[in-house]
Nucleic acid binder design. Structure first.
Lengths: 134, 134
DNA sequence: GTTGTTGCAAAGAATTTGCAACATA
DNA sequence: TATGTTGCAAATTCTTTGCAACAAC
């Protein structure tokens, strides 16, 4: 339930934020603010474009969403709260979450060897999902 | 020598493309088209902004440059032709190239386990370089 | 009631495009 | 000479911001 999620991260529960979370629920592919805005409009939902941008931004900061750039725009999707990597379909934007011990090991080893204060990392795999590869 | 590089990838050798390659030579940090354009102007070099965009795009496609998004804009840097990953300073944009067998192993294992036609991957580590961490 | 949120329209920023002039091969 | 490239200005697209009305707590 979106309401509880919002409370948990200390954001006010508004119709708009709830709508955004609902729209992203169980959606495997990532979407941009523009796409989401268009969906709302087509569905007859009244939401401002800047509100969609602001909602996605706060939800992302709160850790409720993943976000990454795709072809010049930022895209978002619901994600599990624990650290993970991605398997991203370059055709349909469908995303699968991956855990990857190997990657964590790599990061640890690099931070040991280099004079570098590691603050984060990202590791994603691109390709075509079974549906799009056909 | 930029001239040879351009020939090798089948691009015409122009003053502008050569200038872009020169400007990127041995520069450890990544730069955007806008930044490069400003540098040229300040140096008295006459180059159009769209030309900088187009030069970076073709050089990137030719595999002579790495590129990744940074705060809403695309940034570029010279890179070695072989596959590698990055250690990126979030303060000064300095980039170090990494080879990572562990990452390659991970990608291979994922492509074996999932119904997914892998076309590429990317793995980068973010943090502060020794100079910026001070 | 206080404070955070929304919506709109305007502003901003990065990037792309049309097209005539021009440079490279 | 034929074709790829440049430069400029205009157009596009994504994103942010100011501010008054409004909703959540």
């Amino acid at each position: 339930m979106p309401v509880q999620l919002l409370r948990d991260v200390g954001l006010r529960v508004t119709r708009q934020r709830t709508a955004v979370l609902d729209a992203l629920a169980d959606r495997p592919e990532a979407v941009s603010a523009q796409e989401l805005y268009t969906e709302f409009r087509n569905a007859g939902d009244s939401i401002g474009l800047s509100t969609v941008y602001r909602a996605l931004e706060s939800l992302d900061e709160a850790g409720l969403l993943d976000s990454f750039p795709r072809e010049g725009e930022q895209v978002y999707r619901r994600c599990s709260p624990k650290h993970h990597h991605h398997l991203i379909c370059i055709d349909c934007s469908r995303v699968e979450e991956l855990e990857a011990t190997l990657v964590e090991d790599w990061v640890a080893s690099v931070s040991n060897v280099h004079d570098f204060e590691v603050t984060g990392h990202r590791a994603d795999i691109y390709g075509r999902c079974i549906a799009c590869a056909a």
